[in-house]
Design a protein around this nucleic acid. Structure first.
Length: 393
RNA sequence: GGUGGGUUGCCCGAGCGGCCAAUGGGAGCGGACUGUAAAUCCGCCGGCUCUGCCUUCAGUGGUUCAAAUCCACUACCCACCA
């Protein structure tokens, strides 16, 4: 209930639009309020884009308010409101239910579901399912994100909805609906959609979105994503995602300006977020791995534990002992780091192929038994920083 | 409902019977430079059992020695008229 929550969000450039700022301020200062944020289950995991708005929800909770995370099981089923893909198979229903479950589990790690301002999980399937299909279409139609707000207002006295700035229209429609139907005032706050300095969408790489699920984006890749961020994006990323104090952040911004090469701010960002999502011990492992693999020391000098720990973070493939070792090209494709043999051959031809940090030459090159580190590991590298591992067992 | 235009590789967009795996741009990838950054420059950029072969230009069928290119039908999009 600190009066500075909105000021803090402002400082973080996390506010795109709000309904009347003064009223909102008064509303938030008055008591511990319920507010909600909705997610569409369009994938089995949340990604960094979701995390940006989710972080704001968390800030509200830390300020004493009660967050409601709405996972739109119903929304996920309807999806495309144009109705073009209106035929849904039973399978899809099950899939969406599964996704909703997974997303819930991720939210549980991020919000506090205990205590006096415990977070609440809601699923709009709870109030859309009992409504018959015909009345649903007639009364609610595709506007049910608006309807959700009304329903949460009734059930949880929720009078603030937050979301990405693309949701502004929807949210305000909900505010209006509550005013009309319930004669109560409701509020809205949107968060700017993040973009990168180069104009591309934030949180996407060539290989796709950065997911919170460690099976979809490894903690190592997650950490590296932040560590390798464009210098120009780091300040905003810290503002948006970090829970450090303003003073600490200002220091990092300063370091970014005066000594960008040290990448102190990048590292702080990568550490904090990886810890937040994957836990501190995982972060330590991942960082140790990166240090080992990118260090100037010889890979062969690393002890088995360090090496095997580091390699476990990478895309990898296993080979059985005894079979002849395939070519570098075949191996790198097997790890999944390169998608076709043509692409792998190209990399060799262009001089970007490495085995155990030594450049290799020739498309037919195959590691020998002597190449094995500690008798069972191979470290493949593509270009400057993409690594993969092979283990013989 | 009527008439006309469109559907090309990850995206945009040329091609309009053979020289087309298909111009150009963007994205992506490799190299140089660096800081596991950006900008810049150079190269690559469908797949494979790689001097060749295979699968691509909305779908299906047809004409032809030969089609992304011509014809017919189907689907979707867009424009003008109603």
């Amino acid at each position: 209930m600190t009066s500075s929550l909105l000021d803090d969000l402002q400082w973080r450039k996390s506010i795109a639009q709000t309904t009347d700022r003064k009223e909102l301020e008064t509303f938030l200062n008055g008591a511990s309020r319920s507010l909600y944020l909705g997610f569409d289950p369009t994938a089995p995991s949340l990604h960094l884009g979701n995390l940006a708005v989710l972080t704001v929800l968390r800030r509200f909770q830390l300020a004493g308010h009660k967050p409601i995370a709405l996972v739109g099981g119903a929304t996920g089923l309807v999806g495309d409101p144009s109705g073009r893909n209106s035929e849904r198979s039973l399978n899809e229903v099950e899939v969406v239910a599964d996704w909703v479950g997974r997303i819930r589990a991720q939210l549980e790690g991020f919000l506090d579901f205990t205590g006096k301002n415990a977070a609440v999980m809601a699923n709009n399937l709870d109030w859309t399912a009992p409504v018959s299909a015909i009345s649903f279409l007639r009364d609610i139609g595709k506007h049910f994100s608006v309807f959700d707000y009304l329903e949460l207002n009734r059930r949880h006295d929720c009078a603030l909805q937050i979301g990405g700035s693309d949701q502004w229209g929807n949210i305000v429609a909900g505010v209006d609906l509550i005013r009309r139907v319930e004669s109560k005032s409701a509020h809205a706050l949107t968060i700017p959609l993040m973009t990168k300095a180069d104009g591309t969408k934030f949180g996407k790489t060539a290989s796709g979105a950065i997911w919170l699920d460690p099976k979809m984006t490894s903690p190592y890749a997650f950490f590296q994503f932040f560590l390798n961020s464009d210098d120009r994006d780091v300040e905003q990323l810290l503002r948006s995602f970090s829970f450090k104090s303003h003073e600490e952040l200002e220091q990092l911004f300063e370091s970014l300006k005066t000594n960008p090469g040290a990448r102190e701010a990048h590292r702080a960002l990568a550490r904090e977020l990886t810890s937040l999502i994957h836990g501190e011990s995982e972060t330590l492992k991942v960082e140790a791995a990166a240090k080992a693999l990118f260090g100037q020391g010889e890979l062969a000098d690393l002890d088995v534990e360090t090496l095997s720990g580091a390699l476990s973070e990478l895309p990898r493939t296993n080979l059985s002992k005894g079979v002849p070792i395939p070519t570098w090209v075949d191996l790198i494709v097997a790890t999944g780091l390169v998608e076709s043999k043509s692409a792998a051959r190209r990399i060799v031809k262009e001089g970007g192929a490495y085995l155990n940090n030594e450049k290799i030459v020739g498309e037919d090159f195959a590691p020998t038994a002597q190449s094995l580190l500690h008798g069972r590991f191979l470290v493949l590298r593509k270009g400057k920083r993409d690594l993969a591992a092979v283990e013989i067992s």
